[in-house]
Amino acid sequence: MQFKIENDQIVMQIIQTSDAHDLFSAIQNTLTELRKFPASLVWALEEPNLQASKAFCQSRLIALLNQENFVFIIRLNASNDFLGVMDIHDIDWQLNTASIGFWGNAKFKQKGYMTQALRLFIHTLFLKWNFVVLNAYVDVENLPARRLCEKNGFLLKNIEYDSVKNPVDGSFRDICHYQIER
């Protein structure tokens, strides 16, 4: 499996414990945006701290060994700036399907980096890892994430109404199920 994905501008690599500080910093930069969607980004409700970021990195390395979750850190190739995170989870190795998740560092938003990263990620998952279907689940009001999916060829399969409970106010959120096939 390919654990380094890159083009001229960006590089994506499997998360390492050495990424914890940059991860923590990016979460701090992006917390306001992340907390707008607490039903789908529950982890963002916790107060960020370096220890939690280290623990996350370590837990994802264990998940990698178990082939349950592959988390990639996205960086600018030239400067090594931390752009965001992209992962696959809910992997079905028999059917070659998985779900993807992503979030970008607000410091670099609207520069096209996440669009590039998702395009590269999809290409690698289809051509090098032999996945045939990828899913993405996005809060109906998370317009930037929805646009990112749509720009990269995901089609809205359905809207799962009242499917996720918002831990902040107990309301139920509608989640868009996007899908792309090889």
Rank of each mutant, 00 (worst) to 15 (best):
M1W: 00
K4C: 04
I5F: 02
I5R: 05
E6Q: 14
N7V: 01
D8K: 14
Q9V: 12
V11T: 12
V11L: 07
M12R: 06
M12T: 06
Q13W: 03
I14N: 05
S18L: 10
D19T: 04
A20L: 01
D22T: 02
A26C: 10
I27L: 03
I27Y: 05
I27E: 14
I27F: 01
Q28I: 13
Q28N: 14
T30S: 15
E33N: 14
E33I: 09
F37G: 01
A39K: 08
A39Y: 04
S40G: 13
V42C: 03
A44R: 08
A44Q: 08
L45Y: 06
L45I: 09
E47L: 12
P48V: 04
P48W: 04
N49S: 07
Q51V: 12
K54E: 15
C57W: 03
S59R: 07
L61P: 00
I62V: 15
L65G: 13
L65N: 15
L65E: 15
N66R: 13
N66Q: 15
Q67N: 12
Q67L: 09
Q67A: 09
E68A: 06
N69T: 06
V71T: 14
V71I: 10
F72V: 00
I73W: 03
I73V: 15
I74G: 02
L76V: 07
N77F: 04
A78V: 08
D81V: 00
D81E: 14
G84R: 06
V85A: 00
V85F: 03
I88D: 00
I91F: 04
Q94K: 11
N96G: 02
N96K: 13
T97Q: 12
T97I: 12
A98K: 04
I100D: 04
I100Q: 09
G101S: 10
F102Y: 15
W103K: 07
W103Q: 05
G104I: 06
G104P: 01
G104N: 14
A106D: 09
K107L: 12
K107Y: 06
F108T: 04
K109N: 10
K109V: 03
K111W: 01
K111T: 03
G112Q: 11
T115H: 08
Q116T: 11
A117G: 11
L120H: 07
F121W: 07
I122R: 03
H123T: 14
T124E: 10
L125F: 13
L125A: 06
F126K: 07
L127K: 13
K128E: 15
K128Y: 10
W129M: 13
W129F: 15
N130I: 03
F131N: 01
F131W: 04
L134A: 06
L134I: 08
N135E: 12
V138D: 02
V138M: 01
V138Y: 00
L143S: 11
R146K: 14
L148Y: 08
L148K: 08
C149W: 05
E150W: 08
K151L: 10
N152Q: 08
F154Y: 06
F154W: 05
L155S: 14
D162C: 09
S163G: 08
V164D: 00
V164P: 00
K165L: 06
N166M: 04
P167E: 09
V168N: 05
V168P: 05
D169C: 05
D169I: 07
F172T: 02
D174P: 01
Q179C: 05
E181G: 03
E181V: 09
R182Q: 10
